[in-house]
Design a protein around this nucleic acid. Structure first.
Lengths: 221, 221
DNA sequence: CGAATCCTTGACAAGATTCAACTCGGGTGG
DNA sequence: CCACCCGAGTTGAATCTTGTCAAGGATTCG
C-alpha cells in the first residue's frame, strides 16, 4: 500500500492519486494562508500543526501521527502551518481530486465529516486545557492524552515515546519550556512518572495523573 | 418560516421536522455527555457552549447567535454543555432524522462538513488566543471578533451590543471577571472604546485594537 | 571527540488572580 | 412612589503562579 493508514475501506481510489513525500526534521510542509492545493496524511513520523503571531509566539494546535489528516483550509488558504517534528513521510493528495471524489462518493464525504467532527471535539477539549487548567494540570493532561493515543493504536500505555521537545510541548500547552521541564522533574521526583531518556516517559502512577489532570487535590505530589 | 436561518437553500425538508423551543435566560439546553438525541439551531438570543471541570471551573468555547448550529456529539453523547445567555428560542431536530436525511441528500452532508470545518477553524484561532495571548490581547481579539460577526450579518461594526456578562467573557477568554473589567476600563480611559451602558461597546480606535490583538506595540494605550 | 541542541535548575520579575469593598441600575414590594 | 435589594460591574491591595533571564549539565550526532 502506497499510503498506509489512508483509507481502510474500499475508497482506495484515493491511493491511486496520492503521492508520497519524505521530509527531514523541522521542515515546513505548508504555511498558514498559503494556497491550499493539497490534503496530506501522515504515513510515518510526527507532524506539528501551528499558528503564529507576528512577533513569533506560536501555538501548536496539534501533533499528528501516522494516519492523521492535515490540510484544513478556508477560502482557499490553509488555516494553519504544518511542520515536521521528526523525520516523516506524508501522502499528498490534490485538493481538487478529493473534492470531485467527495461529490461522487458520499461515503468519503461522510468519512471526512466524521474526521472533522473528531478533530473539533479534540479542539474543544484543548480549549478547556488552555483556558482553565494550571500548568501541572496541563502537563498531566498531555501525558494522559499521549498514553491514550498510544493505547488506541495498540501500543503500550505505560512506557511512552515522547518525540517532541520540551519547547514543542510548551507551545502546545501554552507554557514555557522551563515550566514544562520543571513540572516533569517534579512528577519524576514524586514518583509519578519515570524519565529515563528525557524523551521516554513511564506513567508510574496514572491514578495521580488522572486526579491532577482534572484539578482534584492530589494525594502526595 | 418556522426556524429562521436554518437552511437557506432547498433543504427546507429540515424545517418540517424541526420544533421550536423557547428558553429563559441561564437555562440549560443540554449537558455534556447527555445522550445526544437532538441537533439545535439558534433562532433568536445568545447561547453559550461550555465545558466544565469537576471543581466548577468552566471554559466557554463559543457564543452562538441566530443561525448557528449546536449539538456536536461523539459516541452518542454531547461533547459540551449548552446554556442560554439571554432569553432565546432554538430549533430542535431529532438526530436520527438528520442522519437519515444526510444519507439521502449529499448536499446536506456537504453543508454539515462546511459548517464543521468553519467551527474547527474558529477553534484553532481560539487556541492561539488562549495559549499565547496576554489578557489585553485577548480582550482586544474578542471585541474585534464581535465586531466582525456583527458586520458579517449586516449590522454595525462600530456600536456593538455585548449581551454577555463580564464573567461570561472571562470564562470565554480564560481570564477572571475582574481582569476583563479592568482591561475594558483601561481601553475606555485610553479612548479606544466607549462603554455607555456596560453592555454596549463602541470601537472608537479599531486600529489600536487590531495592533493590540496581534501583540504589536500599541501606540498610546 | 567536539559542537550543537536540548534539558534542567535557580533567582528574580511581572502579569493575572484572589479577596474585599464599594458603586450602579433595575425591579419589587411595602 | 420610593426604599430596598440583588445582580452586575468596578476598583484596590496583596498574593501567587508562571515567565524571564541566566548558567550549567546532558545527550546526540557528525
Amino acid at each position: 500500500m502506497v499510503c498506509a493508514g489512508l483509507e481502510p475501506d474500499q475508497l482506495d481510489r484515493l491511493s491511486e492519486i496520492a503521492t508520497e513525500v519524505a521530509f527531514a526534521r523541522n521542515q515546513v510542509v505548508f504555511l498558514e494562508r498559503d494556497a491550499g492545493t493539497h490534503l496530506f496524511t501522515v504515513t510515518s513520523g510526527v507532524v506539528r500543526v501551528l499558528k503564529t503571531l507576528p512577533d513569533g509566539r506560536r501555538q501548536i494546535t496539534g501533533f499528528l501521527f501516522e494516519g492523521d489528516i492535515l490540510g484544513l483550509m478556508l477560502d482557499g488558504g490553509y488555516v494553519y502551518s504544518a511542520e515536521t517534528s521528526t523525520v516523516a513521510t506524508l501522502c499528498r493528495i490534490p485538493r481538487k481530486k478529493i473534492e470531485s471524489l467527495m461529490a461522487e462518493v458520499p461515503r468519503l464525504l461522510a468519512r471526512m465529516l466524521a474526521l472533522t467532527t473528531h478533530e473539533l471535539a479534540a479542539a474543544q477539549e484543548q480549549m478547556l486545557v488552555l483556558g482553565r487548567k494550571s500548568a501541572k494540570e496541563r502537563v498531566a493532561s498531555f501525558l494522559l492524552s499521549l498514553a491514550r493515543r498510544s493505547e488506541r493504536r495498540g501500543g503500550p500505555g505505560g512506557r511512552l515515546d515522547m518525540p517532541m521537545t520540551r519547547a514543542e510541548i510548551a507551545d502546545y500547552l501554552g507554557l514555557t519550556m522551563e515550566t514544562v521541564s520543571r513540572i516533569l522533574s517534579e512528577f519524576r521526583r514524586g514518583g509519578v512518572i519515570g524519565l529515563d531518556p528525557p524523551q521516554t516517559v513511564s506513567l508510574l502512577r496514572r491514578d495521580i495523573l488522572l486526579k491532577l489532570a482534572q484539578g482534584d487535590v492530589p494525594v502526595g505530589v
